[in-house]
Amino acid sequence: MKNFRLVGLFFLVGFIAFAKPAIAQERSINYPDFSWEKVPQYIHIRKAAAFTDEEIKFLSGFPLITLEKTTGSATYGSTDQGSIMAAKAIKTINPNAKILYYRNVICHYGGNTFDKELMKIQAPFLVDQKNGKGKLIRGTVEAYDLSNKAFRDWWVKSAAKICNSKYIDGLFLDGNIKVLEPGFLLKEIGADKKEQVKEGYLSMMASMREALNSEKLMLANIIRARLPESGLEYINYFDGSYLEGFTAPVNLSYPEYLAKGIDAVQRAAQSGKIITMNFGLGESANTTDKIDDTRSKLKDTEGVQDLLNYYMSIFLVCAEKYSYLNIHDGYSVNTKNGVCDSKVWLQQFPEFDKPLGEPKGSATKVGYSYTREFEHASVWVDIEARKGKVTWK
């Protein structure tokens, strides 16, 4: 345990200095295309059936794409094969698109061809220390025991195998906050086991980086203002951070929480990390722990303009090179009885077609109000009033 703590201290020092990547490995980082011409976008998506030609063409317009769990599984028999086939089709149109394969570090979402190997590992899942029951995530999903080295070896090996496909550009890592949040599963597994799981996670992240081809990306759901240093104490394990739950405060007032999050994103982005900022348009349906950014479905797009302006303004006061915005109404684009889960799928908000231009400097902060100038736009946002505006020149 002492050695793991020393490793943790080393990474914290790396975070403070924002120096070289924490993993000692020569890398040729293959970042996505980026331009200030318009507001840069990212997309995070899943569909159980194969994407249509129209959908593939739409996806190929994004420089950075995460193919979520279940992608293509109904058509190709598994998420890993479905993701590879979708990535191959996208790259036929846009070879420069960077496509990430989804894995969760703590939640067992099945449907991959390599799951049968997991069943050969002894005790791969956490159990309640009082009654021995499993499925500790929402009472329906198994939680990985990251203190189990045999499990970690399987997780790293299986993820690397898919990510080293010529059609996949890296790994999207979800569930990190569940591991790092001190209180999550503490009651069920106890303090000692919780610490062992966290230490196993840190070891697994280091191993994952070393197992990947040097050009492959690792993007994690890691920056969250609820953590002591907003997740920046772990950022150097990764090439960047996905962001969700940005406006769902924990242990702080709403403006204090957002200000802390904005500061963390600005620091990470200015250090050269990839940022993908995600905002959902549906009303929040968060659970009490507010770890997952769950939202109700959007009935239509009427009345979302003020929210769209607010979210875009928050993004633009944070954005640097390799920062991307995703405004959505859920990641599922499955269709049932002719009705798609998403009301904005295959559509583009007009604001994303307006000229932006390079920033003229960093954002200026006065109280809880931020302003920033771009070549073709002026940005203002007041996070206490929960209002924002982009004035297009």
Rank of each mutant, 00 (worst) to 15 (best):
Lys2Pro: 05
Gly8Leu: 09
Leu9Met: 14
Phe10Gln: 13
Phe11His: 14
Leu12Phe: 14
Phe15Val: 11
Ala19Gln: 10
Ala19Ser: 12
Ile23Trp: 00
Ala24Pro: 03
Phe34Lys: 02
Ser35Lys: 03
Trp36Gly: 05
Glu37Val: 01
Lys38Glu: 11
Pro40Leu: 06
Tyr42Asp: 11
Ile45Ser: 11
Lys47Val: 08
Ala48Ser: 10
Ala49Leu: 11
Glu54Pro: 06
Glu55Trp: 01
Phe62His: 13
Leu67His: 03
Leu67Ile: 06
Glu68Arg: 10
Lys69Arg: 08
Thr70Gly: 03
Ser73Glu: 11
Ser83Asn: 00
Ser83Met: 06
Ala86Tyr: 00
Lys88His: 03
Arg103His: 02
Cys107Gly: 00
Gly110Asp: 03
Gly111Leu: 03
Asn112His: 01
Glu117Lys: 11
Glu117Pro: 05
Met119Ile: 09
Pro124Cys: 10
Phe125Tyr: 14
Gln129Ser: 13
Ile137Phe: 13
Arg138Met: 10
Arg138Glu: 14
Gly139Gln: 01
Val141Arg: 00
Glu142Ile: 05
Ala143Val: 08
Tyr144Asp: 01
Asp145Met: 07
Asp145Ile: 10
Leu146Arg: 10
Lys157Ile: 04
Ser158Leu: 05
Ala159Met: 05
Ile162Val: 15
Ser165Pro: 01
Tyr167Trp: 10
Asp169Leu: 01
Gly170Ile: 01
Glu181Asn: 15
Pro182Tyr: 07
Phe184Asp: 07
Leu185Pro: 05
Leu186Cys: 01
Ile189Asp: 06
Ile189Thr: 06
Ile189Asn: 08
Ala191Gln: 11
Ala191Asp: 09
Lys193Tyr: 08
Lys193Leu: 13
Gln196Ile: 13
Lys198Cys: 12
Glu199Ser: 09
Tyr201Ile: 03
Met205Lys: 00
Ala211Gln: 02
Asn213Ile: 04
Glu215Arg: 00
Leu217Val: 03
Ile222Gly: 00
Arg224Asp: 13
Arg226Pro: 01
Glu229Ile: 08
Gly231Met: 03
Tyr234Val: 03
Phe238Asp: 02
Tyr242Trp: 09
Tyr242Ala: 09
Tyr242Phe: 15
Gly245Val: 09
Gly245Asn: 12
Gly245Asp: 06
Pro255Phe: 07
Tyr257Gly: 06
Lys260Glu: 02
Ile262Gly: 04
Gln266Thr: 03
Gln266Pro: 00
Gln270Ser: 15
Ser271Thr: 14
Ser271Glu: 12
Gly272Tyr: 15
Gly272Val: 14
Phe279Trp: 12
Leu281Gln: 04
Gly282Val: 05
Ser284Cys: 15
Lys290Glu: 13
Ile291Trp: 14
Asp293His: 13
Asp293Ile: 12
Arg295Cys: 12
Ser296Cys: 07
Asp300Leu: 02
Asp300Val: 04
Asp300Asn: 13
Glu302Phe: 08
Ser313Thr: 15
Leu316Asn: 13
Tyr322Glu: 12
Gly330Pro: 05
Val333Tyr: 02
Val333Asn: 00
Gly338His: 00
Val339Ala: 01
Ser342Met: 07
Trp345Asp: 02
Gln347Val: 00
Gln347Ile: 01
Asp353Ser: 05
Gly357Cys: 03
Gly357Trp: 01
Glu358Lys: 07
Pro359Ile: 11
Lys360Phe: 09
Ser362Thr: 09
Thr364Cys: 07
Val366Lys: 14
Tyr368Gly: 14
Tyr368Ala: 14
Thr371Met: 10
Thr371Cys: 11
Arg372Leu: 09
Val379Gly: 09
Asp382Phe: 08
Arg386Lys: 15
